[in-house]
Design a binder for these strands. Structure first.
Length: 274
DNA sequence: CTGTTCTCCTGTGGGC
DNA sequence: TGCCCACAGGAGAACA
């Protein structure tokens, strides 16, 4: 389940192979992802040279001559670089290969097909998937004042708020629970009841957790072409997520669990008071 | 606008 | 032991 750090790690892993390379061809074996892949995509991509690989929220943006290839990994997607001469035959869920002129190919794999591969000739700011997105969590724009301002007029819980991409992007279900634990904020706290200190702690916690995960991802980068495309940092220790009934590392009490908007939420009822 | 529910999909794991 | 089915989840779409 790629969260923002995994997407960023993927970006850093694939960028050196893609930037300045020219796309020779694309082999699309499965068009049915979250949205159908454009039928003509292989033709569009042919002879395009990649300038840069960027990330916005959890989307990867592969900038080409005449447009942008947008890739989202969804729940189970991954990208890896494969030496074209040694490429193993595609397996069941290897849906797309993008073949480069430098001897490598970019292979997209996604068992659950929640991901997306889109082509746009719009600028990202104008694209409807991006035009309403909030700031990146690791920028200065995302600070306690900003969060407080946004929270003030909202009746939803603070957990729902930080997972709302219009408020801030890139905080998925796992890191939402983890950052609320670190900030000692109860996930059910009404957004409009958040105080200054809590906002400070929460913003800090989100940044620390994402930073740490990206850093951990970097250590597995050297194996990027050999791995299955899943950087191994995800094993980083989780304090509450998935630990229902287990002991809080901080206070020793029992981690609790409930569902909100169909999503599992984990917290320590002692460390995180409303 | 806001908030909530639905939806896509398949590998995993809990329960019997 | 083996089978079956509920569950998990990112995030846009649809709906209230």
């Amino acid at each position: 389940m790629p969260e923002l750090p995994e997407v960023e790690t993927t970006r850093r892993g694939i960028a050196p192979y893609l930037e300045k390379a020219t796309i020779l061809d694309a082999e699309i074996r499965q068009f049915s992802l979250r949205w159908p892949i454009e039928q003509n995509l292989a033709n569009i991509l042919k002879n395009q040279t990649v300038s840069t690989v960027q990330r916005r929220a959890k989307y990867l943006l592969i900038n080409c001559d005449t447009g942008i290839l947008i890739i989202h990994l969804g729940m189970s997607g991954s990208l890896r670089i494969v030496d074209a001469a040694l490429a193993p035959p595609p397996e069941k869920h290897d849906h797309v290969d993008i073949i480069l002129n430098n001897g490598f190919m970019l292979r997209y794999t996604d068992p659950r097909r929640f991901g997306a591969i889109l082509w746009t000739e719009q600028t990202i700011e104008d694209h409807k998937l991006f035009s309403h997105l909030g700031p990146e969590p690791l920028t200065q724009q995302f600070d306690a004042n900003y969060l407080l301002t946004q929270a003030k007029s909202r009746k939803c819980s603070i957990k729902t708020l930080i997972m709302n991409g219009q408020i801030v992007v890139g905080v998925g279900n796992i890191y939402a629970s983890e950052s609320l634990f670190l900030a000692k904020v109860h996930p059910k706290t009404s957004a409009n009841k958040l105080n200054k200190q809590q906002a400070n702690q929460l913003v800090e916690a989100i940044k620390v957790i994402l930073d740490k995960a990206i850093l951990a991802g970097g250590t597995s980068l050297k194996d990027f072409t050999k791995s299955d495309g899943k950087p191994g940092y995800f094993s980083q220790e989780l304090n509450v997520y998935g630990r229902k009934g287990e002991t809080c590392f901080h206070c020793g009490n029992t981690i609790e669990h409930y569902k909100e908007t169909q999503r599992a939420t984990y917290y320590c009822p002692v460390c995180q008071q409303i």
